[in-house]
């Protein structure tokens, strides 16, 4: 076991370690490799001093360079905003009705509006804007309050039937359960079904037509085509916000409906309101 002993088979120097006759060969690492390891350790320590690293009881060491991911993101957002500043100015200056005519600006507005929609509107209207029971589908061509760019923008800004914005679109369907007899309600439901379906009881519907004319036509129109000024739905089309079956219609007539949408004017920037309006307008139903 003297220093520099050679292994008989390989001719390689051994480390002098031997276990049950098995000797460990010594294949030395290059010395520069060792220095690289030390340099990496030094670099690692320097890095933890320069950047946030060591966990403390609350938070972590800040690092002498003052670097933070949040500041980085903020800087990136600022840089991005600066890049888009021109487009934003143009968006604010453009008349919304003529927006689709300027292709680049429209593309920007729709992309921006998509982002606004996904973080603010998708909770109720769905990420694909298809809505759900009680929350309108924004992809179809049926609008309660109007589907022109200006209508959509107004709805976004002020909302519907909310109490925060005095300009919010407002209407209320009465609860007819207190005003009409059960038979009258059944008849008027049958009449409403007859407006959009071929399967209905003709006699009952005829009775219901009178009830409809007396109680409903003021808002929904004589033919049940609705009235956008009052947000009264078109009852003759194929689209139902709450459902077009007898049970749901009866419930609607008895209790009324009172869908609320918040006002987004105070929450979103002017550019965001315009952008999200352009986005909704571009989904397939825009008028």
């Amino acid at each position: 076991m003297s220093k520099g002993k050679k292994d008989d088979v390989t001719g390689t120097e051994t480390t002098g370690h031997s276990w049950d006759g098995i000797e460990e060969l010594n294949t030395p690492l290059p010395r520069w490799w060792l220095w690289t390891l030390y340099l990496c350790i030094i670099w690692g320590i320097a890095h933890t001093i320069a950047y946030p690293a060591w966990p403390m009881i609350s938070g972590a060491t800040k690092g002498v360079l003052g670097w933070s991911t949040r500041a980085n993101v903020a800087a990136e957002i600022t840089a991005h905003d600066a890049k888009n500043a021109e487009l934003v100015t143009a968006l604010l200056a453009t008349d919304m009705e003529t927006l689709p005519a300027s292709a680049d600006l429209n593309r920007y507005a729709i992309a921006r509006g998509g982002a606004v929609f996904r973080s603010n509107c998708s909770q109720c209207h769905g990420s694909g804007a298809a809505g759900t029971k009680g929350y309108p589908n924004l992809l179809d061509d049926d609008w309660l309050w109007g589907g022109q760019m200006a209508d959509i923008e107004f709805t976004v800004r002020h909302g519907i039937r909310n109490e925060q914005d005095s300009d919010a679109r407002y209407s209320q369907m009465p609860a007819f359960g207190e005003m009409l007899e059960k038979e009258e309600i059944a008849a008027v439901v049958e009449h409403v079904v007859s407006l959009s379906s071929a399967e209905y009881d003709a006699n009952l519907s005829a009775t219901g037509a009178t009830v409809f004319a007396d109680n409903c036509s003021a808002c929904h129109g004589e033919d049940g085509l609705g009235d956008r000024i009052q947000g009264a739905p078109n009852l003759a089309d194929a689209i139902w916000l709450y459902g077009g079956d007898h049970e749901t219609l009866t419930n609607t007539v008895v209790n009324g409906q009172f869908g609320i949408m918040p006002a987004w004017g105070p929450r979103l920037t002017e550019a965001d309101i315009r952008a999200v309006s352009a986005y909704v307008h571009s989904l397939g139903g825009g008028e």
């Binding site: 003297s2 002098g16 276990w19 010395r31 520069w32």
Partner: peptide
């Protein structure tokens, strides 16, 4: 097994 002599270096300078 113990070995009292100095073990060979595990690092080699470059030739």
């Amino acid at each position: 097994m113990t070995d009292q002599t100095k073990p060979p270096s595990l690092y080699a300078p470059r030739v």
